[in-house]
Computed example of a mutant assay.
Amino acid sequence: MKQEPLSKVNEENSKVNIIRFLGGKSTLFVLVSILLIGLIIVVFKEVSFIFYPIKVFSSTVVLPIILASIGYYLLRPILRLLEKIRIPRPWGILIIFLGVAGLITLLVFLVLPFLKSQVNNLIDDFPTYFKKLTLDIDTFLRTSIFSSYYESLDINAMAIVESAPDNVGKFLTDTVGGIAVGLTSFVSALTGFILAIVTVPFILFYLLKDGEKLPKVFIKMLPPSMRDDAEVIVKDADHQISSYIQGQILVAICIGIMVSIGFRIIGMEYALLLGVIAMFTSVVPYLGPLIAITPAVIIAIVTSPFMLIKLAVVWTIVQLIDGKFISPQIMGKSLSIHPITIIFVLLTAGSLFGVAGVILGIPGYALLKVVVTHLFKLYKVRYNKHIPEKKYRYEIPE
């Protein structure tokens, strides 16, 4: 049955319903509310300097809190497992801390020296790679269908290659000079970062000890009428963040291992280093694999055309295994975010907050989506209370 247009509903009743929905009894209430909101914005703009200490405090504590929260969501399942076998929580936390310290020590003494050696070798060999890649591209363009246009540009590839070391040296000199000029800021930032890293274990300890009590304390602070809805939002947000962090870390480790093994099998240089790069960049959806494969493609092109084919085969297999088996099993549909939305979130968060925005943009959006979704559901319930005609009400799923 075709619904009648909303314009046919009694105009006066609609106005009254909207005003009641906003919480008032007359149009004057709505006008005064809008005026007060504008006044608050103007006052806040004029006295924003009062909130500068809060801004400094937030920028100081945000990094250790984020790092500790990531550690909390990664280690919480292990702590719960230890509690199931009747190990007290304090002893469980101590066992976890000792295990993490042992793992870090093992990585520092076994993996880090080999990884450092590969990084140093790559830095030493980079000028050779750059020279060969530049000359190969120059040769290809001169023999391609674009040769006439390319030659009209009068580009001297050999001159570019020969001047590259001087340009790199000048760049490094300018960079060192710039750092020397801003040495105070650099030392301050480095000190803040070190302090943040040092405080992470202490924050993490108290999160593991009392983290599950914090939502209950927060909910008890709210009015009784809001507690049920707040509990649903907190549980849903906790599930979303937990699933994303745990799943993303496991997927990243799997990708790093597969890439390292695959590159090792085909005989590519710096296999471990390229695997580590792939592991860290895979935490960024869509853009991560593109960043990870770029240095591998450069090395493969310089090595041989056949190596490039082998690289393409390995990378395709890794992506297929990840897309068809690993990510669906570990990540599932926990976030339910459209790929286009993910791209827009990454671009926006990256422009606003840099690298941190790219890494934290997706979980931040997932958290915001949970809150907005529940608030919109409450909005629909409130809206339906003030609309007498059933055909104009929202349908609220159970």
Results as ranks from 00 to 15, higher is better:
residue 169 G to S: 09
residue 198 V to N: 08
residue 159 A to G: 01
residue 223 P to Y: 04
residue 173 T to D: 15
residue 185 S to E: 13
residue 203 I to S: 01
residue 158 M to N: 06
residue 160 I to F: 08
residue 194 I to Q: 03
residue 171 F to S: 14
residue 185 S to I: 10
residue 209 K to N: 05
residue 168 V to C: 03
residue 215 P to C: 00
residue 198 V to P: 08
residue 220 K to H: 09
residue 158 M to V: 00
residue 208 L to H: 02
residue 206 Y to Q: 02
residue 156 N to R: 03
residue 204 L to Q: 12
residue 216 K to V: 03
residue 226 M to S: 10
residue 156 N to T: 06
residue 156 N to D: 14
residue 166 D to G: 12
residue 154 D to L: 08
residue 199 T to R: 11
residue 174 D to Q: 13
residue 223 P to L: 07
residue 224 P to W: 06
residue 182 G to R: 12
residue 158 M to R: 02
residue 186 F to G: 06
residue 202 F to G: 06
residue 191 T to D: 03
residue 179 I to Q: 12
residue 206 Y to F: 15
residue 187 V to K: 04
residue 195 L to R: 11
residue 206 Y to D: 01
residue 157 A to M: 03
residue 179 I to R: 08
residue 205 F to I: 04
residue 177 G to P: 06
residue 192 G to I: 07
residue 205 F to L: 06
residue 176 V to S: 10
residue 179 I to Y: 15
residue 175 T to G: 06
residue 158 M to T: 03
residue 175 T to K: 12
residue 198 V to Q: 04
residue 168 V to D: 09
residue 164 A to V: 13
residue 226 M to L: 07
residue 154 D to G: 05
residue 173 T to V: 15
residue 155 I to S: 05
residue 182 G to A: 09
residue 191 T to N: 13
residue 211 G to K: 02
residue 182 G to M: 05
residue 176 V to R: 09
residue 224 P to I: 10
residue 182 G to N: 13
residue 168 V to Y: 01
residue 187 V to G: 06
residue 163 S to N: 04
residue 172 L to I: 14
residue 183 L to C: 10
residue 163 S to H: 11
residue 159 A to C: 02
residue 199 T to D: 08
residue 187 V to I: 14
residue 181 V to S: 15
residue 211 G to E: 00
residue 176 V to F: 07
residue 174 D to P: 02
residue 163 S to M: 10
residue 168 V to N: 05
residue 187 V to R: 12
residue 180 A to H: 07
residue 167 N to Y: 12
residue 177 G to D: 14
residue 194 I to T: 14
residue 226 M to G: 04
residue 193 F to Y: 11
residue 190 L to I: 02
residue 167 N to C: 09
residue 154 D to P: 02
residue 165 P to H: 10
residue 204 L to V: 08
residue 191 T to Q: 08
residue 172 L to N: 14
residue 213 K to M: 00
residue 159 A to E: 03
residue 174 D to A: 15
residue 204 L to E: 08
residue 188 S to C: 02
residue 188 S to G: 15
residue 225 S to I: 13
residue 196 A to N: 07
residue 202 F to T: 11
residue 164 A to K: 05
residue 210 D to M: 01
residue 155 I to V: 07
residue 167 N to Q: 06
residue 192 G to D: 11
residue 223 P to S: 13
residue 166 D to F: 15
residue 188 S to M: 13
residue 211 G to D: 01
residue 172 L to D: 05
residue 179 I to C: 06
residue 206 Y to H: 04
residue 155 I to K: 11
residue 222 L to T: 01
residue 176 V to M: 10
residue 160 I to M: 08
residue 221 M to R: 04
residue 217 V to H: 01
residue 187 V to C: 10
residue 190 L to N: 11
residue 180 A to M: 11
residue 200 V to H: 08
residue 215 P to E: 00
residue 164 A to C: 06
residue 163 S to L: 05
residue 213 K to I: 01
residue 205 F to G: 00
residue 215 P to G: 00
residue 177 G to V: 03
residue 205 F to Y: 12
residue 182 G to F: 09
residue 192 G to W: 02
residue 207 L to P: 01
residue 208 L to W: 02
residue 214 L to C: 00
residue 180 A to G: 14
residue 222 L to F: 08
residue 226 M to D: 07
residue 165 P to M: 04
residue 191 T to A: 08
residue 197 I to R: 09
residue 208 L to V: 03
residue 214 L to I: 05
residue 161 V to L: 03
residue 175 T to N: 05
residue 194 I to E: 08
residue 184 T to D: 03
residue 199 T to Y: 13
